[in-house]
Design a protein around this nucleic acid. Sequence first.
RNA 1: CGGGGCGUAGCGCAGUUUGGUUAGCGCGCACGGUUUGGGUCCGUGAGGCCGUCGGUUCAAAUCCGACCGCCCCGACCA
Length: 477
Amino acid sequence: MADFLTPQQEDFSKWYNEIVQKADLADYSPVRGSMVIKPYGYTLWERIRDELDLRFKETGHVNAYFPLLIPMSFLEKETEHVEGFSPELAVVTHGGGAELEEPLVVRPTSETIIGHMYAKWIQSYRDLPVLINQWANVVRWEMRTRLFLRTTEFLWQEGHTAHATQQEAVEETLRMLDVYTDFAVKEAAIPVIQGRKSESEKFAGAIASYTIEAMMKDGKALQSGTSHFLGQNFARAFDIQFLDENNEKQYAWTTSWGVSTRMVGAVVMCHGDDQGLVLPPHLAPIQVVIVPIWRKDAERAAVIEAAQKIKTQLKGIVRAELDQREGLSPGWKFNDWEMRGVPLRIEIGPRDVANQSVMVARRDIPGREGKVQIAMAELTACLPALLESVQAAIYARALAFRDSHIIDVTTYGELKEAVETGFARAWWAGGTADEAAIKEECKATVRCIPTDQPGGSGACVYTGKPAAEVAIFGRSY
RNA sequence: CGGGGCGUAGCGCAGUUUGGUUAGCGCGCACGGUUUGGGUCCGUGAGGCCGUCGGUUCAAAUCCGACCGCCCCGACCA
């Protein structure tokens, strides 16, 4: 069965490309490096979006929308920022049939235009903090692209906040990192390592960047969300000043943080298997699919009626769909929904109608072991719990996988070996040059310096110098 | 940008080495029937500027040249 997908073991990259298309998440667009997000993939994104948005609102943020086009000169106001982004800018030089006086860039991110507006809006400490988020598309002209993981245009949210004090801004940066962690763990069922980015991996223009790093099933790291403490860099560049309680001018402290459609790729690569997607119930567009089974026309009516009744029963309790497609065998449908990663499948045939029960199959446990018989009357009570059980099980599985692929190493040789299959954790006191050398030799980078530190100290895995922190090394997407 | 691969029906491919009637196959699609508890079966049918342009030739999917595009691996990045 399922020679429809290239097995992960054989070629993970190929598996990924196939599944994204076969599960109807996305398709290639005619423009190199950009993709069409299909309804099923977009619904998944909407689930991600809704869960994050809820958390943003809970932490006091509001949504707004800033424009797509930004004057070129804005990007140039922050030196590091422009250096970081200029190679990947898409620039608009013509409009209305004439060459523009000043080129406009299609936003690669919105710090600059938002900084410009904040300078206008913020006058007094009473105006602070400003806690705005926007859901938007951005464009970065990447050299190499992959569906969801890196596309020329992608969707994301970018939070941009301004604060009166450094402490408040740092707190905000870390608070949103916690929000991301909470989302990843509870909703996406993806265990993440939270930590600080090294100097060389930091956001262009930030004082400090923080990240949640997830491990994919091929042992590679995927940066799944970032939160940046921008200090007063953008406040100085855009003149975001306010009068404090003492009537003194101060530069504001700003932050920015984002999660993108890359998260969809994370869900795919963290949970998917050789049968297809495995979606966490909390994010699955369809949580339960009902597949009716019949042999004769006489049976058909009763089965469909019972199936429809179940669907109605489940309304508002779980996201259920009834697969009424004609001419497809149940087996075919089973495989089809497994490809799409639907967490639970209800099989209902004449025998079930007679017993007033159904078979419920779990996507995360293949074959007979994953099937249980449930009385129709019990469904509304059982299914939510069963979904939670699937959610917990795939998280546990992902966590066990990740933890068994993180190796504590003390020598460089061990590090080199560890990053072949997963992450290496080691004492680290190296600098940017050391990191570059490691990258050259092992194709691995410092993914982060985890928030969770063991304490104490040790010898740096690369330089041998005394180190106060451990770092996570890995190959990344 | 460097290395590799590939452009033939909606998708996946064969045919190209060695040029030769009307370009095939599988899946999918449409219609009819049959079937449906783990990817049913039969029949009928629709669907092609063989990536583009140019060249060689009596004759080009096939040989030659240029170009375009896509995918994979690397350098850059959420």
